[in-house]
Amino acid sequence: MIYVVIGFLWLSICLYLIFGGSDFGAGIIELMTNKKDRAKIQGVMYESMAPVWEANHMWLIIAIVIMFVGFPVVYSTLSISLHIPFVLMLVGIIARGTAFTFLHYDAVEDRWQKLYTQIFYFSSLLTPFFLGVIAASTISHKLIAEEAPFPDKYIFSWLNWFGVSVGLFTISICAYLASIFALRETRNDHELAILVRKAKKVMVYVVISGALVFLNAYLEKIPLFTLVFSGAIGIVAILLATVALGVIFYCIKRRMLLPVRFLAGFQVVMILVAATYTNNTNIVFLSNGNHLSLLEHMAAPKTIEVLGWALVLGSIFILPFLFYLLYSFTKRSK
C-alpha cells in the first residue's frame, strides 16, 4: 500500500506541475505579450483555463495532505527549514487565486481590473519560482535539520544560485505548457501565429534556464548530472522528451493541436521522471549527509493503509467527473 501512496504523491505533484503549472504559465504568457496582442491572448488564455482553474490547484492540496498524513517527519522538517519560501509561495497562490476570481467575476469593468491584472501577472511568477526553489532545496544537501544560526538554517538552505535557476526553469516550463495548451483555443491563424512564436521563444528560455540549472549544480557541487544521467531510465526519458519536441513542431505544422497537448504533458512527465528516478523514495537530502526516505519515515502501517484506500476511492469518484469537465470545456467551440 505504501507504493500506492507514494505513487499518488508523485502523480499529484506531476499533475499539479502540468495543470497548475500551465495555469500559472497563462499569466506569464500574458505578461510576455505586448500591448497590441494582449487582448487577443487574454481571451484565448481565459477560454482555456476559466472552467477548470479551481480544479487544477486541488492537486497541490492532495500532495500536501499525503505529505502530512503519510510522511509527517518529512513534512515537518521541510516546514521548519523552508518556512520562508513556503510563505512566499503561498502569497503567490493567494494573490493569484483571488486576483483571477476578481478579474473574471467582478460585475463592473473599470480601472480596478488593471490592478487585479497586475497582481495576477506578478503572482503567476512568484509561485512557480518558489516551487522550483523548494524542489531544488530538497536535493541540494543544504537543509539543516539540527539547530543552527538563523541565516544558515532558514535562508541559505534554499537561497542559492542552484535554487534560483531551478525556480527560473520552473517558470519557463509553466510558460511553455501554457503556450502549447492554449494553441488549440485560438480562433484564427493570426492568433495561432502569435502563440507559436511565443511557444518558440519560451522553448529557448526552457533550454537556457535548463542549462543554468546544470551549470549551477556543477558550481555548487550538487550531483545533478549523475542524478539524471547515471541510469538508462534518465537518458531514455530525456531522449523521449527531446523527440517529443520534434513531433510537437510537426503537429503544429499539420494543425494537429490536440496531440500537441498530450505531448507537452508527456515531456513534463519525462523531465520529472528523469529528476526523480535515481533517488527513488529518498526525497530530501540534508546538509549532514543523511537523507529522509519516504519508506523509512512513513507513518504507522494502519495510517498508510487507510490513506491508500482513501486515495483510491477518492480517485474513483473524482477522475471520471474531472475528465468529463475537461472534456466538456475543451471541445472546440462551434
Binding site: 480544479a55 486541488m58 502530512f68 507513518a299 495510517t303 482513501a310 476511492l313 477518492g314 473524482i318 467527473f321
Partner: peptide, 26 residues
Amino acid sequence: KHAGPIFGMPFSLEGTAFFIEAIALG
C-alpha cells in the same frame, strides 16, 4: 509530526469532497 498520521484521515477525505466541489462548480 505526531498528529498528522492520526487525524489526517478526515483531511484526505475532505480533499476528495473539495475536489468534487471545485469540479461541480466549474
